[in-house]
Design a protein around this nucleic acid. Structure first.
Lengths: 226, 226
DNA sequence: GTCTATAAACGGATAGAC
DNA sequence: GTCTATCCGTTTATAGAC
């Protein structure tokens, strides 16, 4: 586990890197069937490469999962953090960014939709959300960028909610992260829930979800301490 | 799948039914490692019975999972529904049960803790929550009692929140269910989150979780429509 | 109903040719 | 870097004795 293989330097100008093809297929399949439910053979079959390449490039199935997570969270975690820092600069010295803005920023960067079938879009978000629930998931699944982002948000919410102590804020950020993960992971979930009672017009259109979620979370944050 | 085996009639007064022992072990292990991550041999090994009995009693691994879900949700769904009906009778004819009471009732019945290692306690709750995120989970995992319970709660919340339309209420119940599932399933999740920024004193003591969650959810329900 | 033994397929990982 | 062939343990499921 200490001998994590790094990306080879030679940037071959081939049609599409084999390594990338594996990562794409893995992200898709881990998202759809979970880690334990996806076999290396499913992945390599989907990517159209021989089985051995997974172990060559990533050392093991778990190494592949970590690489997938790193690419996904690394890419977007940075962006998210940049948004937040810009917001805080714009607000000025000691003026806190309002709760509603913080919630909207967190949600929109989490739910943002690019192209449907693109890895950087929907699939990747579900993958991240899924990772929260993977039975075997532990800290090594999550790259450090993610930790920093959460930590920064906690600080921002503390400034915006001076009547709450740190523990209160931490809990509520925890609730927000969880609910977002739930909603994003909820492709199957939503279908289930729909079928079993919640048969209103639930949709998984991100814009609508965001509209619904923002007032709910903002009110939750603003609630009096327990 | 149409030939689902029913419980044999002979109620042997043995120490503990083999069938029940399998169900107990399965619930524990599915909860801990997920469906795909749990093998029949782990289950039978844990239960101290030969492998063949799973297929004899439940037909297949999936049949076992469905039986586990049915027992878990059936038992407690009924109880939860009874509470709600009692609340509504006590409130009187047209007086709605207050939002806070509804949230507390839903949460406390969902988070209630009996004995730690008992199936009807913590383990089973996590199992249910886990089922929301199982990649392969679909409607057949959930018995019908569950649907009725959710449907009844939606109606109760509608009466308590006349300024919201049905769609708004359905979304918010959906959020509540999701957040509860997240918190309950979050044994690993919480550890991860802790490790990565949310390093306040998060605890999984159900009473504390409930204290934190109630005001958050009540405020969310009471929020203005989007 | 319970158990042993075994079937038949699939799992991750690797050796070694190219 | 890529690929084939293979090792070897584990998987679900079943056949058939008790």
């Amino acid at each position: 586990m200490s001998t994590r293989r790094t990306r080879p330097v030679s940037q071959s100008p081939s049609v599409l890197d084999t390594r990338e093809r594996i990562l794409d297929a893995a992200a898709r399949l881990f998202t759809a069937h979970g880690f334990a439910g996806t076999s290396i053979r499913m992945i390599t079959g989907d990517a159209g490469v021989p089985v051995a390449l997974v172990n060559y490039h990533f050392g093991s199935k778990r190494g592949l999962m970590e690489a997938v997570m790193e690419r996904a969270l690394g890419r977007h975690g940075g962006t998210r953090l940049n948004y937040l820092e810009k917001l805080e600069r714009d607000a000025g010295e000691d003026k806190p960014v309002p709760v509603k803005t913080l919630v909207e920023t967190f949600l929109s960067s989490a739910l943002r939709l690019t192209r449907r079938d693109d890895l950087s879009g929907t699939v990747f978000k579900q993958l991240v959300a899924r990772a929260f629930y993977e039975p075997g998931a532990d800290a090594s699944f999550f790259p450090t960028e993610y930790a920093e982002t959460i930590e920064r948000y906690v600080q921002a919410f503390r400034r915006a909610l001076p009547h709450l102590n740190e523990t209160d804020v931490v809990w509520r950020v925890y609730f927000m992260v969880g609910l977002v993960a739930y909603v994003i992971a909820g492709k199957d979930t939503m279908r289930i829930t729909q079928q079993y009672g919640l048969d209103g017009q639930l949709t998984d259109d991100p814009a609508q979800v965001l509209d619904r979620l923002v007032p709910f979370l903002v009110a939750g944050f603003a609630a009096p301490p327990p």
